[in-house]
Design a binder for these strands. Sequence first.
DNA 1: TTATATTTGTACCGATTGGTAAATAAATAA
DNA 2: TTATTTATTTACCAATCGGTACAAATATAA
Lengths: 228, 228
Amino acid sequence: MVQYYFLNRHQLINDMENREKTFTTAPKPAAKPRGRPLAFNQEQALEAALNVFWSRGYEGTSMAELTEALGINKPSIYAAFGNKEELFRQALARYVSGPAAFVTEVKKQKTARQVVENFLRQAADFFTNKATPNGCLIVQAALTCGQSSSVIQQELIAYRKSFEEKFAARFDLAKAQGDLPQQVDSKQLAKYIATLHQGMSVQATSGATREELLAVVEMALKNWPASV
Amino acid sequence: MVQYYFLNRHQLINDMENREKTFTTAPKPAAKPRGRPLAFNQEQALEAALNVFWSRGYEGTSMAELTEALGINKPSIYAAFGNKEELFRQALARYVSGPAAFVTEVKKQKTARQVVENFLRQAADFFTNKATPNGCLIVQAALTCGQSSSVIQQELIAYRKSFEEKFAARFDLAKAQGDLPQQVDSKQLAKYIATLHQGMSVQATSGATREELLAVVEMALKNWPASV
DNA sequence: TTATATTTGTACCGATTGGTAAATAAATAA
DNA sequence: TTATTTATTTACCAATCGGTACAAATATAA
């Protein structure tokens, strides 16, 4: 399973980039690399990989499918991204800083209420966006899996936990700022929002529409109807 | 992928059982079967299979792991249950009529409110029951997967949809009986409950405790704190 | 041109996947 | 006892899994 080696090409590149950052401040003088140039765009390849992992999950994605989706042969993928696990991690990083960046951005809203409203409504849009796979990569890429993928599974669990904690921290801030009652348990509220969010992800992968998800959001923010 | 055959042993047995039901009314006169007796208990084996699928998902479960968990050799599994797909379906049926039967039972509560309260609270218990895997089989067994498992994936989506529709029907009944306001959209309410339920399943597989899930349920049934 | 560095394509690796052929074992029926 | 039926065991199948060795190709540096 686990492969040991001294340095692969992928790590070598990273290492050289770090050295460059450490010893020089030159704004990338191009300095044409020595050997045969890459025949593909790394960013585009990573985005293609992200989309496959997003729709099929980590375990459900095979290297064969990746080579087809990226249009690159296997050895080139391994040279550029390490291995399947590393490729997934880089795709995940791209997901978080790219299409899913709104999750972090939304916390800048003025009040906790606005944070939550915007978060859930944008999630409804995002999960059903026709330009990307349905649902949330972090929820569905390795919810269950074989033992060989449990590392990725645990990393995704940690990601979800981290997002939840950041929301709890935002609610603590809201309490300090007075736009959220003191008796509110920030962690519980964050878990409630996370639960809704994750449920919406499952709904989206199962075919729920944007309108249906938005209706769920409205309902979640309202009273239980019997008390109307 | 797909295997064609005239009759396997599994189908033969079902066929003979049906014939018996059709032509006789005798209450199973034992009628000892002809050949070598089964060396394992089918019910126990199915329960063991259910537990593996439940914790690892459909794709994450290998036949090798099943042979170990059931304590039966592969050919015996195939003879008794057909193939991996059929074994999963039978495990799923056992799940629905066994540990997850409360989902159907709970609809017998007097009011819609009681149905939902009981449903979500029992789900919180069920998802974190230490005697069984965490979360919901129907949510997590094939949320995403490779193309070869898409049949199972679609069947689980259909299951979730079916449960949701039955809840909507229960809410329609509640409206007719007057314990739910007429302006409530039964389908939307059902989707809201299903979303919470599915989110709770994700939370449970990620390590949420019973108490945390119960707190989420309480929150879901209450007002948004700002309106208190 | 020649040497060096890097990527590419092909063709392969051992391990594991779901699934099965065939011989043997254990039961009943004649 | 002998024939028949069914289950178990072992040992295997082709296909796919993630991953890689190696030589040809393509660039820069000397």
